[in-house]
Design a protein around this nucleic acid. Structure first.
Lengths: 227, 227
DNA sequence: ATTATCTATAGATCTATAGATAATGC
DNA sequence: ATTATCTATAGATCTATAGATAATGC
């Protein structure tokens, strides 16, 4: 049942205690929301996983929706910021000739590295985001936190493909983000389909393939339609 | 509130009435589940949308999970069957030289056409599937209903790419299905990102681009890693 | 004194079942 | 007679708030 981290009550200052408990609540909520969604998790579930009383959820986070938003907001600036820096670094180093593949490496690999290096908590956040992205509740959260970095990517892609009409770039991004979210979700489907030859939590395997795969796709956009 | 179809009680035979009410329940459930997920919908929501009493949900469908599964099962054979036929037809006509793009056209375009031509109900089913695919509850449903047609696609892709190791094909499919599910979900995100230049319910636009985009991606798989 | 945590509880739903009613079926 | 639909209701949760208790802070 309670396979989560049980709080040890080695008490320090109130500020520390406050911060620690909040983090534990966010960790537990992140884990549960990532698997079961906003409506599939009760505040009692979260409290139980932390080992505290349900009402503490309300003490620290006004209500369920706020807790959900707080889970999103905790790590979003980290992933967003890292990708933004990587894109700016790439832009500077590519000068007048950025490539689609270069931009996608900066965007995708930077993000995947974060999950690869960040351990279980970050993997849970990744799955949480994938779920959120698919959800009406989550749509605005995505917009608010990730629009800037996505538009930055798009702006580089436009410069890399000056002859490709703008909507084509957005369609390309639409495909990219779908594949990325499917990766982050780690549903296990590819494992079963491939009889274990691929594993859905093998982010390094995705990282090795994805930017190049998608870059090739972009090169087909804006061509005369075949039909 | 009740923007759904309100049942007109023009009574016919019991068998007809039974079938009609079941369809209405499935339609309402499909609509609501596609937007809010299993846990985000109550049986009362569904009943209200149909205009009947909640207990009728239990009369026709044992419990909530069964209703959810029934929504999936109602249309799955249609999309699966159509794609299977299209793949077999393509296989026959391509003879010894199937192409990745040809197989993907058969797989993707056939599916997208179904939603394009099928009206609102099929669009709801598409969104329902997208949501299900991202969900622990839905994972086995996907496996049960869609494995055969996906494995058929994979088998053609293998013949089209005889020098590409098998796991690469599965990774390619992983990317394809992510993009497809992101399309079916119609979250509206691409609309907002692109300031209206693209629309997430514009399936014809996706159909025009997707098979070719993904086919180009497949051609990069199995190459020596760049790093 | 302040604040982290718990106890008690209100009020609202939600799922599910048993049994009544009102139609259709012969 | 059979069956589609509704009424009544049990039992379980769930969210959220008010107020008590037990720690830390000076």
């Amino acid at each position: 049942m309670s396979d989560g981290a049980v709080a040890k009550r080695v008490r320090r200052s109130k500020a520390e205690q406050r911060a620690e408990t909040q983090e534990q609540i966010l960790d537990a909520a992140e884990y549960l929301f990532s698997r079961n969604g906003l409506h599939g998790v009760t505040l009692r579930d979260v409290a139980q996983r932390v080992g505290v009383h349900t009402t503490l959820m309300h003490y620290y986070f006004q209500d369920k929706r706020s807790l959900f938003a707080a889970v999103f907001a905790r790590r979003a600036p980290v992933t967003s910021g890292r990708r933004m820096e990587a894109l700016e670094r790439y832009e500077a180093e590519a000068g007048d000739h950025p490539t689609v593949e270069g931009a996608l490496h900066a965007f995708l690999d930077t993000d995947l590295d974060l999950y690869i290096e960040g351990g279980e908590a970050w993997m849970n956040y990744a799955a949480f985001c994938a779920r959120v992205s698919n959800t009406p509740e989550g749509a605005e959260l995505m917009d608010v936190h990730f629009d800037p970095v996505v538009l930055k990517l798009v702006s580089i892609l436009k410069r890399a493909l000056p002859d490709t009409p703008e909507p084509e770039i957005f369609w390309g991004y639409h495909f990219v983000t779908g594949s990325l979210m499917n990766t982050l979700a780690r549903t296990g489907r590819i494992d079963r389909l491939s009889a274990g030859r691929c594993q859905s939590d093998d982010f390094p395997a995705v990282k090795r393939r994805m930017a190049r795969f998608m870059a090739a796709g972009f090169s087909t956009l804006g061509m005369a339609p075949a039909e």
